[in-house]
Structures are given as C-alpha cells and as structure tokens.
Design a protein around this nucleic acid. Sequence first.
DNA 1: CGTTTACACTAGCGCTTGCTTGGTTGACCT
DNA 2: AGGTCAACCAAGCAAGCGCTAGTGTAAACG
Lengths: 192, 192
Amino acid sequence: MNVMNDSPRRKELTRQAAQLFVQEGFDRTTVRMLAQEMGIKSGSLFHHFRDKQEILAAVIEEGTENALSIARAALEECDSDPEARLHAMARAHLATLLTDRNAHVVALYEWRRLDGQARAHLSHLRDAYEALWETVIDEALAAGVIQGDRFLVSRFVMGALNWTVRWYDPEGERSPEDLARELIAMLMSPRA
Amino acid sequence: MNVMNDSPRRKELTRQAAQLFVQEGFDRTTVRMLAQEMGIKSGSLFHHFRDKQEILAAVIEEGTENALSIARAALEECDSDPEARLHAMARAHLATLLTDRNAHVVALYEWRRLDGQARAHLSHLRDAYEALWETVIDEALAAGVIQGDRFLVSRFVMGALNWTVRWYDPEGERSPEDLARELIAMLMSPRA
DNA sequence: CGTTTACACTAGCGCTTGCTTGGTTGACCT
DNA sequence: AGGTCAACCAAGCAAGCGCTAGTGTAAACG
C-alpha cells in the first residue's frame, strides 16, 4: 500500500473523484465507478487510498487548501483599505468556487460523510479560512465601512457566497467580479 | 397498495422519515431503518409509499408547502410598507426553517436524489416560493428601500437565510427575530 | 546482477441493499 | 354473517456493495 503520500498520480485521481462525487453524490459513487473513471480496476484503487472515505477527505482537503492560499494571496496583494480587502476576499472566494468547483460542492454537500478523524483535521483548515473572513470583516467594522454584528455578518456573507454554487452559471452574462461588487455594495453602510 | 394518498398515517411516517434523512442522509438511510423508526417491518413500508424515492419526495413536498403557506400568511398580515414586508418574509423564512427544520435540511441536501418527475413537481412549488421573495424585493427596490440587481439581491438573501441551517442554534442567545432584523439592516440603502 | 518498489490485475468473500410475494389480522360496513 | 379493505408480517431474491488476498510486471535502485 502506498497510502497517504501525495503523488501527482493521486492528485489526478482525486480530481476525477471530485467530479464523480458531484455528479452522483458520495454514497452513490461506487468504487467500481471511480476505478472506471480513472482507467483502472476497482481493486487497484486501494493502492492509492486506504478506503473510500479517504478519497472523500482528499477531495475536500485539496479544495479547502486552495481556497485558503488563494485568499491569503489576494489579501497580500492589496493595501490596508478595508473596502478593498472585503472586495478582494469576495473575489477570491468566487474564484475558488469556480476553479475548484467540484471540490467545493463536495465539501458543502458531503461534509457529514467524513469520519471523526478526517473531520477534525479538515475543520481546522476550514476554521483558518473563516478566520480570514472574520478578520477582514472586523477591520471593516472598525473603520465604519460596514455595520452590524461581526458573527452574523460573516455568516450571512459566507451563506450568500456559498449559495452561488447552486445557481451561478459561469457561461452567463454576469462575471464573478459583478457578483463580488454587488455583494459588497449590499453590505456597505450609509456613509462610507 | 395504498400509494399516493395523504392519510394521517402517511403524514406521520413522512415526519419520522425526515428526521432519519437528516441524521443519516438519504442514501445511508435504509428502508429497514425507516421501518424500524416507524415501528413496522420493512416490507410494510411499501404499502404506504411506492418506493424509497417517494418518501423523499413526500418529505420535501411537505416542507415546501409549509414554507409557502407561512410566507403567504405573513405577507397578508402586514400592510404595504416595503421594509415591513421584507422583514415579514425574513421572519417567515426563519420560522419555517425552525419548525420544519428536518424537511428543509433534507430539501437542501438531498434535492439531487429526486428523480425527474418528482423534481419537476417540486421545482414548481419552490419557484412559487421564490417568486414571493422576488415580488417583495421588487417592491423594495421600486421604493428605494434597497438597491441593486433584483436577481442577485434575491439570490444573496436566500443564500444567507438558507445557510443558517448550518450554524444557527435555536438554544443560543440570538432569536430568529434578531437574525431577521440584522439581515434587513444589512440590505438597507443609505437613506431610507 | 538481484532486490525492492509502485502500480496494476483477477477473483471473489461476506454482507447489505431496495423491493416483491403471498398471506394474516382486525376494524368496519351492510 | 359475510364481505371489504387498510395495515401489517415473514421470508427471501437478485443485485450490488466495499474491500481483501494473492499475483504479475516493469522500472528504479544498491
């Protein structure tokens, strides 16, 4: 068994698994379907992953790590203007939601299928990401750019953004930039 | 077979099914688990429902119908002030999300498990509900109470509200009324 | 050169799944 | 008393499930 490394082969298999998980859902995706998609036999799958659960964890882990690094990069690229930072975070969030769409949809829908161990590990990653949001929102609150309860505002914003995976069509006429701009405009306080 | 009626027995079974679907997810909930929860044997289940899918459809149908009627009642009870109507809708939405929590969680998470026929029927119900929101948002836009793109605003609002099922704790210190007030405040335009 | 390693295969075990079949029960109606 | 009917049960089928065991093979390594 070759389990628990992160070979490029495994990365690719993970990407393909994500697609199937989105199409069929985790439980309905059989190891035989996964193997076929990957061009191998079902038995060979367990050379790369300890069990089916681990494939799910790998998918979610990759998506969340990408989200985190994209958000960090976006924040570093902009100055300390609170509104600009809010905007950067919204844009970064929508960007991952598009490029790693499969992984994020899986994370949203199949989180509960994770066993305790994987859940604990991935919760940490997710918390780190949400902490980024809360920092930026705190800055905006302190500057008076937005108003309200920091906890509620951040939850509402995350909800609005994550919900986009259910209706947003990348081929449509609205760009991710449009969404980000509109969302921030919605948040902004009277005179800021 | 007794299929497709809406006897009180079936209503009760549907309610219990909703709870299990939330706990375990649709796919992981076996007909044997459902039967046990209902106090009957697995075979007897198919006296009330044609197949497992139909149980899912029944759960979602009930939740959506309740949401629709609660929202309609809430709108009838308030005058034509756009802000009050927004507020009433938000309160009604959170109210169903609490009283029919199980059904709505199932609707959010297991929608894709519906087959084409059930999906078509239930899409109609859901569209009717969303149309209610869009009307109220249009009124608020026309009155200048809020600003922005009607499509995006309504999607953002629905996202923020539906996302609450993932974090809101009814036992906590924040009331649904608090959430509704905060959300509407977040939407409101500079001078209105 | 011989050994190890990575990756894949075949074959199938043991179990669970959704659902069917054929029959029983007891309340109700005429 | 005889008939109806919803509600339930016992038993089990066919299919599919995750996963394992044991083997083959070609490249990489000492």
